[in-house]
C-alpha cells in the first residue's frame, strides 16, 4: 500500500483546488488508472476522471502525473513512486478544469477543427483506390495515428504563452493532410497554416514529441510543413526569419546575427527592438556586421548544389 495524491476541484463549488491523499495498492503492474478506479469504486465515488478503453488507444484518460502528461491507463504507478518518492495525479494543463481530473477540451477541439481536418479531394479521383507509392504514404506515419488525447497540448509551452496558437495536435493533423498525396488543397492549407498562430509559432521546445503516448511527432510534422511552405514560396514572418538565417549560412557558413535580425524584423521591427539595440550597443555586444566566410565555403557551395540536384530529380519523378 502507498499514498497517492489526487487533485480535486469543482470550480462551481470550491474556492480553490486541493490535493487529497488516498492509500492504494501499488503492487507492480498496477497502472495509475487502476489506482484511480480503486479510489472511485471503493473509497470516493465523487472522484471524476475520463477513461474508456484502458489500452492506450481511445485517448480519454490523459492526465498530468508526476510532472508529465500522458495516458494514465498505461502509466505504471510503482516505478513513478520509486523514482520520485511520491505520486501526484493532476488534470491536463493548458485546459480549464471542469471537475477534478476532467478538463474542458473545447479549446483543443476548436484548434483541430480550425485546420480543416478532412480530406479535400483533388481533381483526379480514380475509380478504384488511389495508387500512392508506399514511400509517399509512409510520410504520414509521424502524424496519422494521433488519438487526440491532448497530452501534447497540455505540455505545449507555446500554447501556454499564446492560447490562440493552434498547437501540436491540430498542426500534426494539418500535416497529415498537407502531406497526403490524395489531398488537393495542399497550397491553400500551407498558406493558412503559415498565418499567425500556425506553424511558425511553434517554439520547438520538443515537449510534444517527448510526451506523445502514440509516438506521433507533432514538432517534426510542423518542421516539415515549414519546409513545404517555403518551397511553395509562401511568405510569412517566420519564413522571412528562417530564410534570412539560411542565406547567411550560404554566404559565410556561420550565422550572421546582425543581417538575420535586420532582414527578418525589417525597419519597423528594428525600431521596436531599439531598446534592446541601445543596450546592446552600450555594452558593445553588437554581433559582427560582416562575417568572415569559413575556409570551407566551397564545400558548402558544393553540398548545396548536390542537394539541389537531388531535390530536382525527386520532384521530377
Amino acid at each position: 500500500m502507498a499514498t497517492i495524491k489526487v487533485y480535486r476541484f469543482d470550480p462551481e463549488q470550491d474556492e480553490k483546488p486541493r490535493y487529497e491523499e488516498f492509500d492504494v495498492d501499488m503492487s507492480p503492474g498496477r497502472t495509475v488508472l487502476n489506482l484511480l478506479h480503486d479510489i472511485h469504486y471503493n473509497e470516493d465515488p465523487t472522484l471524476s476522471f475520463r477513461r474508456s478503453c484502458q489500452s492506450a488507444i481511445c485517448g480519454s484518460c490523459a492526465m498530468h502525473v508526476n510532472g508529465r502528461t500522458g495516458l494514465s491507463c498505461s502509466m505504471q504507478a510503482k516505478p513513478l513512486l520509486d523514482r520520485d518518492g511520491y505520486l501526484v495525479v493532476e488534470p491536463m494543463k493548458n485546459m480549464p478544469v471542469l471537475k477534478d481530473l476532467v478538463v474542458d477540451m473545447d479549446g483543443f477541439w476548436d484548434s483541430v477543427h480550425e485546420v480543416d481536418p478532412f480530406l479535400q479531394a483533388g481533381r483526379d479521383v480514380p475509380k478504384g483506390a488511389y495508387v500512392v507509392p508506399k514511400a509517399k504514404m509512409d510520410l504520414l506515419k509521424i502524424a496519422q495515428d494521433c488519438i487526440m488525447c491532448g497530452s501534447c497540448l497540455s505540455e505545449c509551452t507555446s500554447r501556454e504563452a499564446n492560447p490562440d496558437y493552434l498547437g501540436p495536435a491540430a498542426l500534426a493533423k494539418a500535416y497529415r493532410f498537407a502531406a497526403d498525396e490524395r489531398d488537393g488543397a495542399t497550397m491553400g492549407r500551407l498558406m493558412a497554416y503559415s498565418e499567425a498562430n500556425g506553424i511558425w509559432d511553434c517554439d520547438t521546445c520538443l515537449y510534444c514529441n517527448e510526451v506523445c503516448p502514440i509516438h506521433v511527432k507533432p514538432m517534426d510534422a510542423i518542421m516539415r510543413m515549414r519546409e513545404m511552405a517555403i518551397e511553395a514560396g509562401i511568405e510569412s514572418q517566420g519564413s522571412k526569419h528562417a530564410i534570412a538565417f539560411y542565406d547567411t549560412i550560404l554566404k559565410s557558413g556561420k550565422l550572421n546575427e546582425f543581417t538575420t535580425a535586420n532582414k527578418s524584423l525589417g525597419i519597423r521591427g528594428m525600431l521596436r527592438t531599439s531598446d534592446v539595440a541601445t543596450k546592446v550597443i552600450l555594452r558593445w555586444k553588437i554581433p559582427e556586421v560582416r562575417k568572415k566566410p569559413i575556409e570551407g565555403m566551397k564545400d558548402v557551395e558544393k553540398l548545396a548544389k548536390l542537394v539541389e540536384r537531388k531535390r530536382r530529380r525527386r520532384t521530377q519523378r
Partner: peptide, 26 residues
C-alpha cells in the same frame, strides 16, 4: 572545428532539411 558550419539551429532545417543534414554530416 574552425571550418565547421553553423549547426542550422533548426532554421536551416526549416528551409532545406537535406542541406542541414549534409552540413552537419560534414
Amino acid at each position: 572545428l574552425e571550418d565547421a558550419t553553423c549547426c542550422g539551429a533548426g532554421f536551416v532545417q526549416d528551409v532545406n532539411y537535406d542541406l542541414a543534414l549534409a552540413l552537419n554530416a560534414r
